[in-house]
């Protein structure tokens, strides 16, 4: 019963993929499929969704790593919406293709865990990147920055602009997104500890919908007339909260920070509706992800400090948590935004 169901799901998924335009990518994989004469390792990465600058930048970094390493074939495919079920279908298809290493940025860590087990049972090395699935069998988590680094970076940038005190609110995105929630926990604790005169008044969830994030930020400003800060917790709400402040004519009265990609944030950083974007070098994250996948595929262990590339000469690996750490978080302002082309 179950295998038949799974087969039906896979079949439907294939049909749906063919319809929604992923055929091209499927053909690519099929063409270069099982015929590998010399040993190249297939490293597949499944982002939360594809087509957004964030994951496309990771893809660019992954491709770059594959080219530099020489013996790696980088596969990249994600759902067109940040949907756990659609993502699971893609993961299943990679399991059936018997890739060597499968790396996922799960939309829903809990529902991804059994699939990662399934992949492992099929002899595939599994890992997570960008977002962890802590209770899964993943062999390594490629972490862009620690939750502390992000949460404290956001809080410090915002409260510097707010003068160290006042009320602020958070517009988050997916309610089950593990990384967003872990950053929010840090923001709560760190604000309480370091900025006792500041207070988080509300946390709302807008999904990946920019217009909804903007409207929610507007509603939050109305609900709290004394609000002086807003945090956009993901790449769609970071410009959203800034746009809301701009539309309400409150630039300089309400300050915003967020996890935004540089090019999307640029207009807002320039007109000061956004004080800073906290991020990391996403292309390097993609590079590190591909490199980690290649290491796993070749059964090579990680050392405490890894020389990955010129840019990534000392990537630390934590044995206890099985985590590779890209480095400290990056603060993007109107001063340095032009250095990034994504």
């Amino acid at each position: 019963m179950r295998p038949r169901f799974a087969a039906a799901v896979a079949l439907t998924a294939t049909a749906a993929l063919a319809l929604t335009g992923c055929t091209k990518k499927n053909d690519d994989t099929a063409a270069s499929g099982d015929a590998g004469g010399e040993k190249t390792y297939k490293v597949a990465f499944v982002p939360k969704l594809q087509g957004v600058p964030y994951f496309e930048a990771m893809n660019a970094g992954g491709k770059e790593a594959a080219a530099a390493l020489g013996n790696v074939e980088w596969l990249y495919q994600g759902p067109t919406q940040a949907d756990a079920a659609a993502q699971a279908d893609i993961v299943r298809s990679y399991i059936q293709q018997k890739v060597d290493a499968l790396i996922v940025a799960p939309n829903d860590p809990d529902s991804m865990a059994p699939l990662l087990q399934q992949a492992k049972d099929a002899g595939i090395h599994v890992a997570t990147a960008d977002t962890d699935a802590p209770s899964s069998v993943r062999e390594v988590f490629v972490n862009q920055a620690t939750a502390e680094g992000i949460g404290q970076g956001l809080t410090d940038a915002l409260l510097t602009a707010m003068g160290g005190k006042g009320k602020y609110a958070i517009v988050s995105c997916g309610q089950t997104a593990e990384n967003l929630n872990s950053w929010i926990e840090v923001q709560k604790a760190y604000t309480k500890e370091k900025y006792p005169e500041a207070q988080i008044v509300d946390i709302v969830y807008a999904g990946e919908d920019q217009a909804k994030a903007t409207q929610m930020a507007t509603d939050l400003m109305n609900a709290h007339p004394d609000l002086t800060g807003l945090v956009g917790e993901c790449t769609s709400s970071a410009p959203g909260v800034a746009q809301a402040v701009k539309d309400a004519g409150k630039i300089g009265k309400v300050f915003t920070v967020g996890l935004g990609t540089p090019q999307a944030m640029k207009p807002y950083l320039t007109d000061k509706s956004s004080t800073a974007a906290i991020l990391w070098d996403v292309e390097n994250l993609g590079y590190l992800t591909a490199w980690a996948g290649a290491q796993l595929a070749q059964d090579k262990p990680f050392s405490a400090t890894n020389n990955v590339s010129g840019d990534l000469s000392s990537v630390t690996y934590d044995e206890a948590s099985k985590m590779l750490l890209l480095g400290p978080a990056l603060q993007i302002t109107d001063q340095n935004v032009d250095q990034f082309n994504y």
Binding site: E208, Q210, Q215, G240, Q243
Partner: peptide
């Protein structure tokens, strides 16, 4: 009503 960036989640 959106921002100066349009992503593919629009209309979803």
């Amino acid at each position: 009503q959106g921002t100066s960036t349009l992503d593919q989640s629009v209309g979803s």
